[in-house]
Amino acid sequence: MTLQPVTVTKPVVEVRHLAKAYSDTVVLRDVCLSIPAGTVTAMIGPSGAGKSTLLRCLNLLEQPDSGEIVIDGHRLTAGERVNPKDLAALRRSAGMVFQHFNLFPHLTVLRNVSLPQERVLKKSRAEANAKSMELLTRMGLADKADQYPSRCSGGQQQRIAIARALALDPRVMLFDEPTSSLDPEVGVEVLEVMKELAAEGMTMIVVTHEMAFAANVADELVVMADGGIIESGPPRQILQDPQHERTRRFLRAVLDR
């Protein structure tokens, strides 16, 4: 089952027949996905559909039961022992942004962004700090560098988290409901940053409830329900003419409120 139309660019992320269950509860069933370089894919669907689980399987925060994941040439087959080198390479290729930011509260903003570069990319402190400051400046947060995350607003914290992930030069950015724990007004700051990233050609997979972002920024919209992908394609087409009854029901719920 291939859902993706033929594209000229080589996919950065390929998911084949991914499945996962917690004892009796199936959370992912036979998910296939192909993400071409430089595209933005928005994943929508009711809660419990498996969107976050799928995203978390991509960098192996969750172990899939079966199937295969290829990210930037690093292939992982479920059920096979993952050697730490492959895992590290895969996680380096995929940057992740969480709903609750998950910044390190005991480190300053600058250390939050610099420490992973020093440890993962083996950069010197000075090199790492230079890169961090460049990213923080881009995010409009240079003046927060010496603060602790707790002194920053939610929107600022999420942008710091994005900077921290970008600092490792990932090939693809995974966003797990990046604005869901933010006030709508604050969420806009984060969405602006994400739009800029998209415009720069970053490959992005975004699990979101922000329908405007999905409609206007995403190149591809993936609708998930009950652990499977029920529909995918250009956002406008799906939003205007959903093929699946489950999609129609979900869109009615999120759009007509």
Binding site: L61, R91, F98, L115, R119, A165, L168
Partner: peptide, 29 residues
């Protein structure tokens, strides 16, 4: 918070670094 483990792992930090630099200092506090 479990998110500290997840964020550290997602960044590709190795276990020793996660313990020494992320988990232990917070637990100690």
């Amino acid at each position: 918070h479990a998110g500290q483990w997840e964020a550290s792992s997602a960044l590709g930090l190795d276990r020793a670094t996660i313990w020494a630099r992320i988990i232990a200092p917070q637990a100690w506090r």
